[in-house]
């Protein structure tokens, strides 16, 4: 799945990318188990084709998109983003996809559309992790419409120039680089534009720990651990690699800081 270099500001990070083997073997994708080594082992049962995505809600042109249609909807771009997990580790990943805004514009949001809700596939036959009660399935995430329309917000279909491996959220997933990784829903089957702020699965499970915004912020700790630093996966020094200081908005403050002007980030964590 080739993609042209992206021209979006901030999209081409000049940092050493995390090895493909690490990106595809160390994953949080609870539908395939809660251990980070589970998805690479068990996601073979996911069938990424045929696949459709329903885009509806507060839009003038609600419709179901077929995967092949989505693959041609906009030119594929390669974007190298930081990924910061809420657990305190990070990667650098070359994704392939296009800005979510392209899709949203196609369905013409109405004046009532204020938020976007993403729903992940929840099929027990394909996803062994659904037997566990760790979250209320299907997995749901949400963004404010202006966040969803931001050019950095990516609908990804591939990584490292290849089609997304199942464990990374095949056949299509969200990538919101300035938010903790769990905001980037995987294996999306529905995108719904709504008027009221949607409730995400993590907010529902532990509201005091996971807020709607979940912007990467070294100054606001998770209630159970510090968010001031992170461990970059696959660093050359291996075991003895120093942790890195976590950057405000994961280093995308120049691009997205204005979205949150005047918002109390301590309250809206």
């Amino acid at each position: 799945l080739p993609g042209a270099r992206s021209n979006v500001a901030g999209a081409m990070l000049m940092e050493q990318a995390t090895a493909y083997a690490d990106v595809t073997s160390y994953n949080n994708f609870y539908e395939f188990g809660t251990d980070k080594s589970d998805p690479a082992r068990t996601a073979g049962s996911l069938k990424p084709r045929p696949w459709t995505v329903m885009v509806d809600g507060e839009v003038r042109q609600p419709r179901r998109f077929d995967l092949d249609e989505l693959l041609k909807l906009a030119p594929m771009e390669e974007r190298v983003y930081r990924l910061r997990c809420v657990e305190g580790w990070s990667m650098v990943i070359p994704w392939v996809g296009w800005s979510l805004a392209e899709l949203l514009k196609k369905v013409e949001p109405t004046g009532n559309a204020k938020f976007v809700e993403f729903t992940t596939l929840a099929d027990r036959a394909q996803m062994p992790g659904l037997r566990s009660g760790v979250l209320d399935w299907p997995y749901r995430e949400g963004l404010r419409l202006d966040e969803a329309m931001h050019p950095l917000t990516l609908l990804a279909f591939g990584l490292y120039g290849e089609v997304l491996p199942n464990q990374n959220g095949a056949p299509l997933r969200l990538v919101v680089p300035w938010k903790y990784g769990f905001k980037s829903a995987k294996s999306i089957v529905r995108i719904r534009l709504v008027e009221k702020q949607p409730l995400s699965s993590w907010e529902q499970a532990a509201p005091q720990e996971y807020g709607f915004y979940s912007n990467v912020n070294p100054q606001v700790d998770h209630p159970r651990w510090s968010q001031a630093s992170e461990r970059r996966i696959g660093e050359a020094q291996g075991l003895f690699a120093k942790k890195r200081p976590t950057l405000m908005f994961n280093g995308y403050e120049a691009q997205v800081g204005q979205l949150y002007a005047g918002l109390d980030l301590r309250k809206h964590y």
Binding site: K36, S37, W89, L239, A241
Partner: peptide
Amino acid sequence: AALYGGLGPNPAEAL
């Protein structure tokens, strides 16, 4: 395992 890369993507956590 630590010497020969057998600790996986996050060796510190694994150890």
